Computed example of a mutant assay.
Amino acid sequence: MIALPQTPSFRLDGRRALVTGAGRGLGLAIAAALAEAGAFVTLVARTEIEIAAAAAALTARGDQAESLTLDVGDSAAVAAALAARPAYDILVNNAGTNRPKPIGEVTAEDYRAVMDLNVEAAFRLTQSVTGRLRAEGKGGTIISISSQMGHVGAVNRALYCASKHAIEGMTKALAVELGPYGIRVNSIAPTFFETPLTRPYFDDPVFKASVLSKIKLGRLGQLEDIMGAVVFLASDAAAMITGTSLLVDGGWTAE
């Protein structure tokens, strides 16, 4: 009888995952997906009420989850928090912000707010998690939530695009550097998703029509659209995937 190959597991049982910006929107969906796949998930955000409620909902469902109130922009606090916990096998850098403005209106404070959270916080957290993995001789996977704007440009988004292109560059460089240690590094680049952060933008019918005209599937992303992508990249099913960006953009960047 022919010996057939077996599909690698999408399960994450026995693994520990850290998800930033996990109180709502994409972050909450990502945390829920990883927990449902069997991972023990630490939900991180600055707002304690949101992540505590989210973690409680996951544990009530039978998942393994905890909340960690933390400002990921505070590198000293991040280092202390991680040092007090076992190593994480999975890190999802999801926390981020956007301040869309014409280039002439972008202030120094805008620049610091976007770059500090979107780039430096992700860099420092990745540095801490991967440093621990290397010290313990463990492999792992880093997933940064980038954007389709990390692959293209757009009006009023020079600052945001700069931050997400930086994430894409960091992903490739770290994949090269950390591959020999068994640590995979990838990004997920979503299109416009309907979340609490983006919903006010779509109150403008002209803006919404413009966005939908570029998404070839003709609709906004929903939270469920990112859940499978994260579980896939975190699992053994993606064991040979590193240094890449998984575009969840409905075809925006296809032309």
Rank of each mutant, 00 (worst) to 15 (best):
Leu91Phe: 07
Asn93Met: 10
Asn94Leu: 11
Asn94Asp: 11
Ala95Lys: 05
Ala95Cys: 03
Gly96Ile: 04
Thr97Cys: 13
Asn98Pro: 00
Asn98Val: 12
Arg99Gln: 14
Lys101Val: 04
Lys101Thr: 06
Lys101Gln: 14
Pro102Leu: 13
Ile103Trp: 09
Gly104Ile: 12
Gly104Gln: 13
Gly104Leu: 12
Glu105Met: 12
Thr107Met: 06
Ala108Trp: 07
Glu109Gln: 15
Tyr111Thr: 15
Tyr111Pro: 03
Tyr111Ser: 13
Ala113Ser: 15
Ala113Arg: 15
Met115Phe: 10
Met115Asn: 05
Met115Cys: 02
Leu117Pro: 05
Asn118Met: 11
Asn118Val: 08
Asn118Trp: 08
Val119Phe: 06
Glu120His: 11
Glu120Phe: 12
Glu120Arg: 15
Phe123Met: 11
Phe123Gly: 01
Arg124Thr: 11
Thr126Arg: 08
Val129His: 06
Thr130Trp: 08
Gly131Glu: 08
Arg132Trp: 02
Arg132Asn: 03
Leu133Trp: 11
Leu133Arg: 10
Arg134Gly: 01
Arg134Trp: 00
Lys138Arg: 15
Gly139Ile: 02
Thr141Glu: 02
Ile142His: 09
Ile143Thr: 08
Ile145Gln: 06
Ile145Val: 15
Ser146Phe: 08
Ser147Asp: 09
Ser147Lys: 07
Ser147Ile: 10
Ser147Cys: 10
Gln148Cys: 07
Gln148Thr: 09
Met149Gln: 11
Met149Pro: 01
His151Lys: 14
Val152Gln: 11
Val152Trp: 01
Ala154Thr: 02
Ala154Leu: 14
Ala154Cys: 03
Val155Thr: 15
Asn156Phe: 13
Asn156Met: 14
Ala158Lys: 02
Leu159Asp: 10
Leu159Cys: 10
Tyr160Glu: 04
Tyr160Gly: 01
Cys161Gln: 04
Cys161Arg: 05
Cys161Pro: 05
Ser163Tyr: 07
Ser163Arg: 12
Lys164Asn: 04
His165Cys: 01
Ile167Asn: 05
Glu168Cys: 07
Glu168Gln: 13
Glu168Asn: 14
Gly169Leu: 08
Gly169Val: 05
Met170Pro: 09
Met170Asn: 08
Thr171Met: 14
Thr171Asn: 12
Ala173Met: 13
Leu174Gly: 04
Leu174Ser: 12
Leu174Lys: 11
Leu178Pro: 01
Leu178Trp: 14
Gly179Gln: 04
Pro180Trp: 02
Ile183Gly: 05
Arg184Gln: 08
Val185Ser: 05
Asn186Gly: 09
Ser187Trp: 09
Thr191Trp: 12
Thr191Val: 14
Thr191Met: 15
Phe192Val: 03
Phe192Ala: 13
Phe192Lys: 03
Phe192Gln: 10
Phe193Pro: 05
Thr195Pro: 03
Pro196Met: 11
Pro196Glu: 13
Phe202Met: 07
Asp203Trp: 02
Asp203Ile: 03
Asp204Met: 03
Asp204Cys: 08
Asp204Tyr: 02
Asp204Thr: 07
Val206Arg: 06
Val206Ser: 01
Val206Trp: 00
Lys208Cys: 06
Ser210Val: 00
Ser210Tyr: 01
Leu212Gly: 01
Leu212Met: 00
Lys214Ile: 00
Lys214Phe: 00
Lys214Ala: 05
Ile215Cys: 00
Ile215Tyr: 09
Ile215Met: 14
Lys216Glu: 06
Leu217Val: 15
Leu217Cys: 02
Leu220His: 09
Gly221Glu: 12
Gln222Met: 14
Gln222Thr: 10
Glu224Cys: 04
